[in-house]
Design a protein around this nucleic acid. Structure first.
Lengths: 339, 339
DNA sequence: AAAATCACTGCAAACGTTTTCATTTGCAAT
DNA sequence: ATTGCAAATGAAAACGTTTGCAGTGATTTT
């Protein structure tokens, strides 16, 4: 436990007979010192087992090489994938990802963001546009650059990389309409504090309204993004307002939950009910029946967010808005409407 | 972008007419200053919108209130659950979780660990016992306390909180034996750099050996922990050495992959093949058929790891080893052996 | 040969806190 | 009033780097 006795840069400098400044440069900016000196310092460093003190470095240089991410729970596969690729891309550039999660609670999110800023992150990655108003004030005061993921800001006010949820949702609904469905139900995520969910729901409404088809209020149900909750919500939907032939789900987790419940009650998909997902998580292809869904490039969003942030930190100009394309993936959970 | 102009503690001190030291104490150790002074300082702080500079604080106090975690990819639901609960528990105690992931590559893991140590984490949470030998040297030199999760160290050398993979695996295999199965196959995770996987496989072998039942080498297959890989591996297993009636899987992801492939080829589970999982992820209960598996308390492992680490940092004595109980969850993917 | 340029190197001042130690203050007991 | 003591405060030294500026030779230019 000899933590206090860790070699510091001063020890390396002494061991290699150079000044602190030169030792620092030899390790951080190799081009600035003569090759021979550089080698001497490096050797001394590895000899002593020197590990730079990142905290001190951050204080002195006013950059921590750390990016914070404030995400919903990563037990949702799409967020797991995005954080994964985000972290990977950042690590490749010598940055570390500091991850915080918030359970869809804006207050928790605010605290987490504040904590990350205190920890001195060089940049932040957020999810969606719905935040406590204090968030943006906090971000502005701190002068921390941030990227918003998943959503794109129609006002063009924030840097964003995401997809057009509403349009994708319209397309998905149209797919069902083309199959002849007229009786719709929606298994949505909670719309409070979640603009993606709201947009997706709005997309369904928009597509139906365009054909003058009613979406009954009792056929819209909100549930948490977990399998058990989704099953329960679907059961409730069936009990409350049966008779729909198409179910549009806020995401794949909800859709797969619905499929599980269908299987459990011997309901045939897609013969008696078509189920549409959203996201195209890994599970979707393996579900039974394989889930028709909208592919959202989650990992790509993470990668792009990393790339954009790194570019901005390097002082490069980055287009404020980057919209990624989504695609319908038609599998076997949707079929012609029964009569 | 007025980052440079952020108020610092000195500004707060000046504004409230006290010294730097008193201002620091008023905010960090309220009991040490007179109530009246404390209020004056607090007021000045919120007036100015003062946000403490965590990096400077960490440097001066030699504690960062940050815990690092080096995990396999969190797209595996068990790790997502564990990091989630870990982060939660730490946040509740004013600590931040710094998460790094490593794709089951010991070299990457070593670099990530080193990075976290450089960042000044107060403690580390690792997964399993298989690590680059340099890891422990690094940890010892840095004097950073660490907790190993999932596995328990038989030698009692490290602080651990985990489960007895081998014994659980023996039990799971016995369950299949009791159902009359004699022809076994194993769909295992990669055993390199993964002691949990090896122990689980060893458990199967042990249980079979006890009944003098052979496990043919061509009936053991390793695959990555993803659905598509699992499906492919299962297909290969079927092609290479068909005829087994029981399939023991290294985890639920692999098992569900196998179930998907069974469904795709019209193979009836459990009538013609029994499938056994491991972990009891959310999906397991919803799979079709619902998966028989071994419940591993992933979230609880995260919580306990946090509690243990916090206790140790607070100087409390913590029993070095904590073994959590696992339980068989018998659902519908296992049944009597066909004849 | 002097001057100008260049590539390195070193000194010392940040960076924004916490914490030790000494000093002052407030208050109760003489 | 004085004393004694604890509680509250302040001055200044860390914490381990980076970095602006100045200095040193060596090398080139005039």
């Amino acid at each position: 436990m000899a933590r206090g006795s860790n070699p510091k840069l001063a020890d390396v400098a002494r061991a290699s007979g150079v000044s602190l400044a030169t030792a620092s440069r030899a390790l951080a900016e190799p081009d600035l010192v003569r090759a021979k000196t550089r080698e001497r310092v490096r050797e001394a460093a590895s000899m002593l087992g020197y590990v730079p003190h990142g905290v001190a470095r951050a204080l002195a240089s006013r950059r921590s090489r750390t990016i914070g991410a404030v995400f919903p729970p990563v037990d949702n596969p799409i967020f797991a994938a995005a954080t994964q690729s985000l972290g990977h891309a950042l690590a490749g550039a010598g940055y570390t990802l500091l991850l915080a999660t918030h359970d869809y609670d804006p207050a928790v999110e605010l605290v987490a963001t504040r904590t990350l800023i205190e920890r001195g992150v060089d940049g932040l990655v957020l999810v969606g546009l719905d935040h406590d108003p204090m968030m943006f004030q906090l971000l502005r005061r701190a002068g921390v650059p941030y990227e918003i993921t998943w959503s794109v800001d129609p006002a063009g006010f924030h840097h964003c990389v995401g997809v057009a949820h509403r349009i994708a949702s319209v397309r998905a609904t149209q797919h069902l309409l083309e199959l002849g469905h007229r009786e719709f139900a929606v298994l949505s995520g909670h719309t409070a504090h979640n603009d993606r969910t709201r947009e997706r729901l709005a997309g369904v409404r928009e597509a139906l309204a365009a054909r003058a088809i009613e979406l009954r209020a009792d056929r819209v149900m909100e549930a948490e993004f977990t399998l058990p909750q989704a099953r329960a919500a679907f059961a409730l939907l069936q009990a409350r307002a049966p008779g729909f032939t198409a179910l549009v789900c806020g995401n794949d987790v909800l859709a797969i939950g619905a499929l599980c419940e269908c299987a459990a009650r011997g309901m045939r998909v897609p013969q008696s009910l078509s189920v549409m997902g959203f996201d195209d998580i890994d599970m979707a292809a393996g579900a039974s029946p394989p889930l028709t869904t909208v592919r959202v490039p989650a990992a790509e969003i993470g990668r792009r967010a990393a790339a954009r942030m790194l570019a901005r930190l390097a002082g490069e100009a980055v287009p404020p808005i980057e919209e990624l394309q989504v695609g319908m993936v038609v599998r076997e959970s949707t079929g012609p409407a029964p009569r």
